[in-house]
């Protein structure tokens, strides 16, 4: 885009832009070094006591304790556990919501739409707090419930968009060969919509993992909470160190998952989704087509 906007740069302009690039790189690097040094400098607090700098070994010696790492690992595992359970429920709810949202029956479609609008417009944190208070579940299930309802609503909306974006012929063909509306939805439209929306769904699951940190507020013993409880235990001297370590763990988890999401998105994208991938999928039972066909016909005739 940008290359079309101006004439191709000549040798002078290239040189100038290269110099500018190097200078700004140096400026950014200098800024970062200054920040690191400023954080590392010893500080004098209001009452005149001098605190050691943030990179001082006395602020980092707790990390040689194996129990500290074990606690952090437990916190990370708790975070992952909540994310995993919530992801499963969110996917199931998402499928249900999408079916309700595109239902032909008014009595299903309109209530689902209202519920979805309500859920999507509300903060997850508020939902967590109230599930905790109203149903007095533990903080784990409050977090799981709120996360799965909220992300289920968003996944459902994505799936609905996927179903709506399919050519009409898909549904018409399904109905024409005698499948019931529900069967058409389940076996013809839904698999295609799901495959098409997979990148969005996975991106939403990354958001879900990030949002598990909200359970910190309702007192769930997740990664950030394990960091703060250890800060309370070892003293505020370590608060910055623990924060930095927790941040690093979160970043690693999220970046890995985002990267995975990108890989999957690319892989499903290159298969040129839609009808062709469906036909490529292996049949459930590798039977002789002559045996399958009469059975299918028989099933059809058995239905009213």
């Amino acid at each position: 885009m940008t290359s079309v906007l101006y004439d191709a740069p000549g040798p002078k302009a290239i040189l100038r832009s290269r110099i500018f690039s190097v200078v700004t790189a140096l400026l950014i690097a200098a800024g970062l070094v200054w920040l690191i040094l400023a954080l590392g400098a010893p500080k004098t607090s209001a009452n005149g006591a001098v605190q050691p700098g943030l990179w001082d070994p006395t602020r980092w010696d707790v990390f040689s304790d194996r129990e500290v790492w074990r606690t952090l690992g437990r916190g990370a595992l708790n975070t992952l556990r909540m994310a995993g359970v919530a992801a499963v429920f969110a996917l199931l709810l998402g499928v249900l919501f999408s079916f309700g949202r595109v239902s032909d029956t008014k009595w299903i479609r309109i209530p689902t739409t209202v519920v979805l609008e309500f859920v999507r417009g509300m903060p997850v944190l508020l939902m967590m707090l109230f599930i905790l208070l109203v149903f007095s579940t533990g903080s784990f299930w409050a977090g799981v419930a709120a996360l799965s309802v909220y992300n289920g609503a968003i996944i459902g909306e994505a799936l609905r968009a996927g179903i709506k974006s399919l050519p009409r012929g898909q549904r018409e063909a399904g109905l024409a060969i005698g499948l019931t509306p529900v069967a058409t939805r389940l076996r013809i439209e839904f698999p295609q919509a799901f495959r098409q929306m997979l990148p969005i769904i996975i991106a939403q699951l990354v958001v879900l993992l990030k949002d598990t940190s909200l359970a910190f507020v309702v007192g769930y013993e997740e990664l950030l909470r394990s960091g703060t409880s250890m800060t309370n235990f070892f003293g505020s001297r370590y608060s910055f160190s623990f924060f930095l370590v927790v941040l690093a763990i979160y970043l690693t988890m999220n970046l890995l998952l985002s990267w995975l999401a990108r890989v999957i998105a690319r892989r499903t994208g290159s298969k040129s989704g839609g009808v062709t991938t469906e036909t490529k999928a292996p049949p459930e039972k590798p039977l002789d087509p002559e045996l399958v066909y009469p059975a299918a016909l028989g099933n059809q005739m058995g239905k009213p």
Binding site: L39, K43, S45, K210, D211, T212, S213, L214, F216, V217, L224, T228, S236, S239, F240, F243, V246, L247, Y250, L251, N254, L255, S258
Partner: peptide, 19 residues
């Protein structure tokens, strides 16, 4: 890729700690 809770935690606890 940083959870909002962590960002706000940094602002509410770590920044005051850094005076």
């Amino acid at each position: 890729n940083t959870p909002l809770t962590l960002v706000l935690f940094f602002c509410a606890f770590i920044l005051p700690y850094l005076q």
